[in-house]
Amino acid sequence: MEESLRLAVAVIGNAASVSLYAAPIVTFKRVIKKKSTEEFSCIPYIIGLLNCLLFTWYGLPVVSNKWENFPLVTVNGVGVVLELSYVLIYFWYASPKGKGKVAMVGIPVLLLFCIIAAVSAFAFHDSRHRKLLVGSIGLGVSVAMYASPLVVMKKVIQTKSVEFMPLPLSICSFLATLLWLTYGLLIRDIFVAGPSVIGTPLGILQLVIYFKYRKASVVEEPSKGDMEKGNLEKVDMEMEIVETNVTNRMNGNL
């Protein structure tokens, strides 16, 4: 029964995580369409890439005991492909300053992963110590990944606009963290459950902020009816001016 529950949570967690990694597709369609990264930040995607690389490595038999963490390999393997695609698209459409920022953050991140992989594979000779090294670093990176939307949340609060905090991303983030927290507790692995202890409350906070400022944005945004009413009022004023001018000219002629 417990094994079936773990499998069910892992499958649903995989689906939610893939949805989380796929959610920015909407954002990057906009980037490609406008040929501009606008005010979107590259940092969450680079941190997300490092997170996926680390947990793919963590789940492989090189680090884990055989295939005990196979669900981590499947979902994070998909995440590596998607996050790398986002970073490359961002780099392509970014301004020269933005390209420099991607390189300054991205290159050290990839080097860090290579060092961690090499040390875990060759410096340690048992699964326990390898998991301790990779899992500890992965835990820290995951917390940073789940905390990175705090920058966006700050911007939402300042601008009172949710334009740069898409709802699908917020929902998927909350669901994924909640499910992986459950899965980590079921398999008793602190490195799987740990990030979600931070991620789940942050996911809830993100949703609360979204719905609060979404309502504010809707209230502040003029409706189509108001715009049409304003246009009619403008036309009426212009007609009144014309009528006044005509009347004045007629009176002058008289």
Rank of each mutant, 00 (worst) to 15 (best):
M1I: 09
S4D: 12
R6S: 15
L7E: 12
V9L: 12
A10L: 03
I12R: 00
A15C: 15
A15R: 04
A16E: 04
V18S: 07
V26M: 14
K29P: 00
V31N: 10
K33F: 07
K34Q: 09
K35G: 14
T37V: 15
E39R: 14
E39I: 06
S41H: 12
I43N: 00
L49E: 10
L54D: 00
F55R: 01
T56K: 04
T56S: 10
W57R: 00
Y58R: 09
V63P: 01
N65A: 09
N69S: 13
F70I: 14
L72S: 13
V73L: 14
T74I: 15
N76S: 05
G77S: 12
G79F: 00
L82N: 02
V87G: 03
I89E: 01
F91I: 02
A94H: 06
S95W: 05
G98Y: 09
G106K: 00
I107Q: 11
V109W: 01
I115N: 03
A117Y: 10
A121V: 05
F124I: 10
F124C: 05
D126W: 06
D126G: 06
R128C: 01
L133K: 02
L133H: 05
G135Q: 04
S136I: 08
I137V: 14
L139Q: 03
L139F: 15
V141T: 07
Y146A: 04
Y146L: 05
S148T: 08
P149F: 07
V151G: 05
V156Y: 03
S161E: 09
P168E: 13
C172A: 15
S173E: 04
L179D: 00
L181Y: 04
L181F: 13
G184E: 02
L185T: 04
I187Q: 10
I187S: 09
D189W: 06
F191H: 12
F191M: 12
A193Y: 11
V197W: 08
G199A: 10
P201L: 11
G203H: 05
L205W: 11
K212H: 14
K215Y: 05
K215V: 08
K215A: 13
V219N: 14
E220T: 05
P222L: 07
M227K: 13
G230W: 06
M239P: 00
I241Y: 11
T247Y: 08
T247W: 03
N251E: 13
L254N: 08
